[in-house]
């Protein structure tokens, strides 16, 4: 496997005493520029397989920007330059030009539910169809499995052919998760997936994230620190484009080693 070591800029080197999962994503000295402006500074982090990694930090700290480098969504913005290493399953994703393959493997759920103006079924079947799956029975199976996987099947199974935009925000977001699952990804990125949802929907999505951990590596950006504490195994604290601290979630929230982390998680700023 890749030999990149965790480079905690200021964290202590006490490695946590859990059964360590394999490294899924290894990032080393990643810098990102929007034109002249640098947004990420020497970011290094190892994300483990089948864990939930939370990225926290104040607005504009670069956590969403970092999340979007993981499936190269920043490529869509003009004038973005990226250097450093980002290795997923032993392959540097910025050396390879197969963005389509990368995005099939690394799915994404956005801040606001962004279902297409089509039926629920067509939304979930969209990705597989675009990959060339035409067999009806196979598509039906994928759609059902994905919707079950996103814990929304029972709520929508009788209205698969009706417009997805008629669902509530929370339901839409879970269908978005189903749509991502339908591609059978290995990693799922979530960019503040509950920030537009009410508390009950938020709870459902959080439960879903906890259950999805068995199958997927999840990286979640969140503004909500309780959420990070509830759903994640590891937490990285971003500030001004740097990772200040990256450790077990328990440790980040109970005894962080950096003063700035402590100030943030105790609500003194941000």
């Amino acid at each position: 496997m890749n030999t990149t070591v965790i480079d905690r800029k200021t964290a202590t080197d006490k490695s946590a005493n859990t059964t360590e999962q394999q490294t899924k994503i290894a990032v080393k000295d990643l810098n990102l520029f929007y034109g002249e402006k640098q947004a990420l500074f020497d970011v290094s982090i190892d994300i483990k397989e089948k864990e939930v990694t939370a990225l926290i930090g104040p607005s504009g700290c670069g956590k969403s920007t970092f999340l979007r480098t993981l499936n190269r969504m920043n490529d869509l913005i003009d004038g973005v330059k990226i250097n450093g290493k980002m290795v997923i399953d032993g392959e540097d994703i910025y050396q390879s030009n197969d963005v389509i393959k990368l995005r099939t493997k690394v799915g994404m759920v956005f801040q606001k539910p962004n279902l297409f103006p089509m039926s629920i079924y067509d939304n979930v079947a969209y990705g597989p169809r675009m990959q060339g799956i035409k067999n009806k029975a196979e598509l039906n199976k994928i759609v059902e499995e994905s919707l079950r996987g996103a814990a929304i099947w029972d709520e929508v199974k009788d209205r698969l052919k009706s417009s997805a935009l008629g669902l509530s925000g929370g339901q839409q977001q879970r269908v978005c998760i189903a749509r991502a699952i339908a591609m059978k990804p290995e990693v799922i990125l979530m960019d503040e997936p509950t920030s537009a949802l009410d508390p009950i929907s938020t709870l459902k999505v959080e439960e879903l994230i906890a259950s999805m951990k068995k199958e997927y590596t999840i990286v979640i950006v969140t503004h909500n620190m309780q959420q990070a504490a509830r759903v994640s195994d590891k937490t990285a604290f971003f500030l001004n484009g740097e990772i200040i601290e990256f450790d077990e979630t328990n440790k980040i929230f109970s005894m962080p080693s950096d003063q700035r982390t402590e100030d943030y998680v105790t609500g003194r700023f941000g």
């Binding site: 499936n71 969504m73 869509l76 389509i100 393959k101 990368l102 995005r103 099939t104 493997k105 799915g107 994404m108 956005f110 606001k112 962004n114 279902l115 297409f116 103006p117 089509m118 969209y126 990705g127 675009m130 990959q131 978005c176 749509r179 991502a180 591609m183």
Partner: peptide
């Protein structure tokens, strides 16, 4: 958001244009 949603599913830009953007 529609474009991003489609591209994030590993659909090519041209596929995204014809299957999501133009229908919308």
């Amino acid at each position: 958001a529609y474009r991003e949603g489609s591209l994030a599913l590993g659909v090519s830009p041209i596929g995204t244009i014809f299957k999501v953007v133009v229908p919308a």
